[in-house]
Amino acid sequence: MRSGWRHFLWPEWNRRFLVRLAVVAAAAWLLFSQFLLPLRIRGASMEPAYHDGGVNLCFRGRYWFGTPRRFDVVAVRLAGTRVMLLKRVLALPGETVAFQHGRLLVDGQPVTEPQPVLAGGDWELPPRRVAPGRLFVAGDNRSMPIEQHVLGEAELERVAGAPVW
């Protein structure tokens, strides 16, 4: 048993071990560069659901066979997939979205959001129609002034995936 542990922790560097090591490294690279991208969350715009400094994985296959739905949390690419925006989908293509006294309105009707949001910013956003092929996204932290919050429309093709948890 003891020799087994020793073998596990300090294996013999033979051809078989190097092949196994190469296969595991290639599989890990493929998994974590193409399917599950490691994320480190920076900023407080998605509080209270996602905290500054938190870690997560972006599942790139989440929308391979469908499109994002309202209130999904999505990762939006900027120039590539190393830095992305983590936002919540609030309105779909063709819908009209607005904020009145901090309350979300979609197509003129107040919408109750299922997820907890940080309120207090009293956001005001005049009604705007979401362009075809785009989503309207924003963070859950509405306690900050709307001018300081990164929100707006993102092209569907720029949705890189969704966080795993």
């Binding site: 900027l78 120039a79 590539g80 997939t81 190393r82 830095v83």
Partner: peptide, 19 residues
């Protein structure tokens, strides 16, 4: 990060995007 560069036909101009 994510520096994307594309040299346009003619080779004298390029478009780039980055974070």
């Amino acid at each position: 990060a994510d520096v994307q560069a594309r040299v346009l036909p003619g080779g004298r101009e390029a478009e780039a995007a980055a974070v």
